[in-house]
Design a protein around this nucleic acid. Structure first.
Lengths: 150, 150
DNA sequence: CGATACGTAATAGAATAAGTTACATGACTA
DNA sequence: TAGTCATGTAACTTATTCTATTACGTATCG
């Protein structure tokens, strides 16, 4: 497994849930994401704790959106997943005795912090409803002008 | 994902090399970085190919800087290491059939691209000589005013 | 020639995200 | 109330990738 794809997967499933009447089971979501229902439950648990989805047991149970897409940002989902580590590159050790390494860490940390702020502010700006709107555009392009290339 | 610490390590060693007369062996560098000499050779190979260091075999051999620190930026080192993947978070699959997932990928890719540009431009701005200068400050603070806290 | 040092392929180890198994709990339905 | 469906979660396995190690080759110096 190359990198953490939970954010991507959760955005995907949340938008499908919005376009779906009633609840969806972990089994169906797992098929949609090409994964396992246990992985779905584990990952969605964070979204449930944050109040973005609800889960119900028993007949007719499953997962359902608890809030409209325009009240959920990418940042909200990222935070609900526990703010996973964003960078694949990092400093060698956290609090080195070596003064040279301390300076290296300071320089790298500054740069990573700036990039992380950029990413988080982007995430805060984008609501799931924006992505759903983009989907609508793609869908119309595909169904209304199926043979058109431009 | 366990993160890649090669950039951090290479910056560390390059600055030590600048403050060191003559060449340093892979064994000594390995001790400095708490790693293995083979790992050092493997990682430094990229820097040698890019012309930032030179390596010599035999007695008195080892590694030596081939260019001054003010002609090497963090970006240069990053590129010499083969531009390793920067993000630990990513999209689930690259070219999905699902239109929803295509929209999700587009939104995430936009955000990641912006953050990557931010990071790369920061890397381009910072020269290794800047880090060395920061080290000098820390060193003076430690040796000239050892008991002072402010 | 012998010691030193890099070059690199091949293999093993370690960390972690993801996948799987197993079983418990709760909820609906007949 | 029994039977099923569905989630909750711990425990374990698998897969991937960065890092470490082993082993052997080549070049250089004295």
């Amino acid at each position: 497994m190359r990198h953490d794809s939970r954010l991507s997967r959760m955005l995907h499933v949340l938008i499908h849930m919005d376009r779906h009447d009633g609840s969806i089971t972990s089994d169906n979501i797992a098929k949609m994401l090409n994964t396992n229902p246990v992985v779905v439950r584990r990952t969605m648990a964070g979204l449930r704790n944050a109040g973005y989805v609800r889960s119900d047991k028993g007949h007719g149970g499953g997962w359902i959106l608890a809030r409209p897409l325009d009240e959920i940002s990418l940042l909200d989902v990222h935070q609900a997943l526990g703010r996973p580590e964003m960078f694949a590159i990092g400093i060698a050790i956290d609090h080195p005795d070596c003064l040279v390494e301390q300076s290296v860490n300071a320089a790298l940390t500054d740069a990573f912090d700036a990039a992380e702020q950029m990413l988080l502010s982007r995430f805060a700006e984008v609501k799931l409803s924006d992505i759903a709107r983009d989907f609508d555009l793609r869908f119309r392009n595909l169904t209304e002008r199926p043979a058109q290339t431009v």
